[in-house]
Design a protein around this nucleic acid. Structure first.
Lengths: 200, 200
DNA sequence: TAACAAACTAAACAGTTGTTTAATGGTTGT
DNA sequence: ACAACCATTAAACAACTGTTTAGTTTGTTA
């Protein structure tokens, strides 16, 4: 269950502190001294280990991306949705990663763009296979549909605080996730319009 | 078509500059001096007119929220989707507002939370009416469905840069919007799964 | 034990931040 | 013409920023 994030070197502690703070407040609002305090070290040590704040940010990006993509699970390496599911299953441990991950898409970083594009490719592959096997209906603009599905999936991440508040939870947990999942499954199964009244 | 944003007082110019910069870079990365330069005034004047940076941010929030909710359109006052459609129709003019609006939801400001909740209420009302008239299928968890639809709609806003890039456009324009809209309409009409193979 | 390298800190650095102050110029009302 | 007022600026302020420097501790190796 646990990963190499457990390496308890000081450098790793600093990186984890940065992931927590950048996730919570954004990169621009996260100072080297704040990271240092959060990690229980001096500000100079943060720079000593990472060179600069920008490089620290890059190290955090790399770490999160590696964790979400190269993680080995029972379902095979590179299965991103499996990794994210695992994160959701142990929210207490992985919540900071999820929050950081969501910031990756709204901060417009290169790392976030790459990840998004990879998601679209994966979605594309799944849709193609589904259409080939007859499980999924074909569509005119396959690429737009792939982008739409990825966008919808990620919105659960980027808008998680609003979802949780609106569903009455104090934070985005498994209950919120399953309620949204059920609603989404229903939508993907038969839409929301009754067949007879489908608009043009 | 144009609104009271056309008041060309210096105070309005400063606010518009702030909306542009905060939308582009986020509040934490937007300095009073940067806003002043963008508006062609001195840094002191920014504070003179708004009191502090936090109050300037609040003024921007208020302005955008007012524009998106109290705007009078042919479809009646308070029709948010009509207002947003209007913004999309004249992207050159309103793009900064859309970008600022999207930041409202990812910055977790109170203004964004209020707006999200209002959207959910509107969505709830529309769904109820649709179900009553037989146009929309009922569902077990109506609230979750309302939240899901709002989340999906807003994701087109919060992830607009990724959508545009993935669709091959240089920026999020009417073509991207219509491709996503068509894909969404199809999804809402009959889902993506073929009836015979609907998963449990 | 001596020597060396790495981890680490406190202090100082120049630059930027939000905000204040004092002053100037222009407009308005009388 | 005069007073009052507002818009506006340049300069200064302390607090904070990322980073550097110099130094100290700590651990390893020979």
């Amino acid at each position: 269950m646990r990963s190499r994030s457990d390496d308890s070197t000081t450098k790793a502690r600093i990186r984890d502190a940065a992931i927590r703070l950048i996730g919570r407040n954004g990169f621009a609002a996260t100072s080297a001294r704040a990271v240092a305090t959060e990690a229980g070290v001096s500000a100079g040590l943060v720079i000593h280990h990472f060179g600069s704040m920008r490089e620290l940010k890059a190290a955090c990006d790399d770490f999160i991306i590696t964790e979400v993509t190269h993680r080995k699970t029972g379902l095979g390496e590179g299965d991103v949705s499996a990794a994210v599911s695992e994160w959701y299953a142990d929210l207490a441990t992985f919540e900071p990663w999820l929050i950081y991950l969501s910031r990756l898409f709204t901060d417009d970083s290169v790392a976030g763009a790459d990840l998004f594009d990879r998601f679209v490719e994966m979605s594309h592959t799944m849709l193609r296979e589904g259409v080939a096997s007859g499980a999924i209906t074909p569509t005119a603009d396959e690429h737009a549909r792939a982008v739409l599905l990825v966008t919808h999936s990620l919105s659960t991440l980027t808008l998680q605080s609003h979802i949780a508040r609106s569903l009455g939870s104090s934070h985005f947990g498994l209950d919120s996730l399953s309620r949204m999942g059920n609603a989404a499954l229903e939508l993907y199964t038969h839409g929301i319009y009754t067949p007879s009244t489908t608009p043009s």
